[in-house]
Structures are given as structure tokens and as C-alpha cells.
């Protein structure tokens, strides 16, 4: 299997706070990997290090065989290969739905307006938001915003999609519509790295589950293994706690 992202000895400190400690893991092409773990364990930081929104303090991030932390590496070209979906959506407030999906294509990928619109419409259909192309972000519900954010990321034709708790800021009744879109994406063969608190979803769509605790990867394995037979005591405790909360 071909490794698309290979993370080696990655560390990140904020001041004296060591948030990530010697992280080693990789994502294969076409794989769906879910990262779970309690609040503050460093999941978002890991994702943000991968697309360099945070500068890692140490280690290597190998993308398709190249270390992107080399000084010479073209950060912007690399970022276009990664689609990022944020917990807080972060749609561009000054653009309508269609504009959100077009501006990156036009300004960064230098696509023509016509092509950009065609691509944007294609992915807005995928997320079921093609009727809302004229709406401004402030006029949409959370679930609709997040679906547009997914379409915006897909419109750049990324090789990997990163999701940072895409449903955590949503009202319960809107979680379903976003998970449905993501479920469809997992079936399309896209490489996906998903930070989530939705255990049912993680279990269902993952090829592999990574459990993080206090800045380290405590355990990783198939969903069956992690959810049914975790080897680590802290994994068991975390799962027990989360399941209790969900009841």
C-alpha cells in the first residue's frame, strides 16, 4: 500500500506545554482514518500541523516521499493538495455559496471562471447545496454551512481531506446531514483523515482508528479492535466514558 502522509517523530510545544510528543503514524492512499480521544489530547493540533496551520516543533511530515518541513518546500502548493474542513466552518463571509467554492479555484489553481463554476456546481450537488448558490453564509444553518465547506474543499480537487470535528459545533438534528455526506465521500475512495467524537460514525466508516491521549498515540488499529478489544487501559476508559455520556 502506498503511504500518502507519513508522520515521523512529530512534536509540538506551545511555550512549555508539550501538546504533541513523538507522533508516528501514516495514512495510506484511499484510506479512511479516524482520530478519537478526549478533549485537549492534541487531535486538532495534529491536524493543523499536517497542513502547517501550526508549525511543528520537531519531526518530519513526509508527503508522497517528500519532507514538507524542508525550508525549500512550496507550502502553498502542498496545502492545495489537502482539503480542510473546520469545526467552525469558516466559510468566507464576503462570498456567497458559489463564490466560496470558486474563489480558491480561480485565485490559487488559476482555473477559468467557467471551469471553476462547473466544478463548484458538481460538488455542491454532491453535498446537496446546489439550490443555495446565491445564499450568504450568514443565511445558512450550521449543517448547511458545513456542507458548503465540504464542497469548497472538494472543489480544489484535493488528494487528502482533513476533517476537524466537523459536527461538533452543530445542533444534534443537523449532525446527520453532514455525516451522510461524509459517509458518501468515504465510499468514493477519497483519502480521509477525520477527527471526530462520533464513535458510531468512526466505527462504521474507518479503515483504521487512532486513539490519542495526552499528546501521544496511545493505540491504533482496526475499528473492531479499538472498539471491541482495546489493548490499552486508557482506551477502555475513554470509550466507557464516551459511551456513558451518549446514553
Amino acid at each position: 500500500m502506498e503511504k500518502i502522509i507519513d508522520i515521523q517523530h512529530l512534536s509540538k510545544t506551545f511555550g512549555t506545554n508539550e501538546v504533541l510528543k513523538d507522533i508516528n503514524f501514516s495514512v495510506n492512499k484511499g484510506e479512511v482514518v479516524c482520530i478519537i480521544g478526549s478533549s485537549g489530547s492534541g487531535k486538532s493540533t495534529l491536524l493543523r500541523c499536517i497542513n502547517l496551520l501550526e508549525k511543528p516543533s520537531g519531526g518530519r511530515i513526509i508527503y508522497k516521499g517528500k519532507n514538507i518541513l524542508d525550508d525549500m518546500h512550496d507550502v502553498r502548493a502542498y496545502r492545495t493538495k489537502l482539503g480542510m474542513v473546520f469545526q467552525q466552518f469558516n466559510l468566507f463571509n464576503n462570498h456567497d455559496v458559489l463564490g466560496n467554492c470558486m474563489v480558491g479555484q480561480i485565485k490559487v489553481l488559476r482555473r477559468s471562471k467557467e471551469e471553476a463554476k462547473e466544478v463548484a456546481m458538481k460538488y455542491l450537488k454532491v453535498v446537496g447545496m446546489e439550490q443555495f448558490i446565491n445564499a450568504k453564509p450568514r443565511q445558512l444553518s450550521g449543517g448547511q454551512k458545513q456542507r458548503v465547506a465540504i464542497a469548497r474543499a472538494l472543489s480544489m480537487n484535493p488528494e487528502v481531506m482533513l476533517f476537524d470535528e466537523p459536527t461538533s459545533a452543530l445542533d444534534p438534528e443537523m449532525v446527520g446531514e453532514v455525516l451522510k455526506v461524509m459517509r458518501e465521500l468515504t465510499e468514493s475512495g477519497l483519502t480521509m483523515l477525520i477527527v471526530t467524537h462520533e464513535m458510531g460514525f468512526a466505527r462504521e466508516v474507518s479503515d483504521r482508528v487512532v486513539f490519542m491521549d495526552k499528546g501521544v498515540i496511545a493505540e491504533e488499529g482496526s475499528p473492531e479492535q479499538i472498539f471491541n478489544n482495546p489493548t490499552q487501559e486508557r482506551t477502555r476508559e475513554f470509550l466507557k466514558r464516551t459511551l456513558q455520556q451518549n446514553q
Binding site: 496551520l53 469558516n90 468566507f92 474563489v103 490559487v108 489553481l109
Partner: peptide
Amino acid sequence: GQFEASYAIGMSHLQAMLNVILPQ
């Protein structure tokens, strides 16, 4: 988040300014 989304999509600081931040 507006800056971060711009950077994440591959924009430079100037592009983010012109296309996302300054209009707002």
C-alpha cells in the same frame, strides 16, 4: 478562521487579504 480557511485553501497572505479579509 477566515485567515485559516484562506491559507488552508492555498492562498498567500496577500491573496487572503484581497479576496477574503479586506472586502469584509
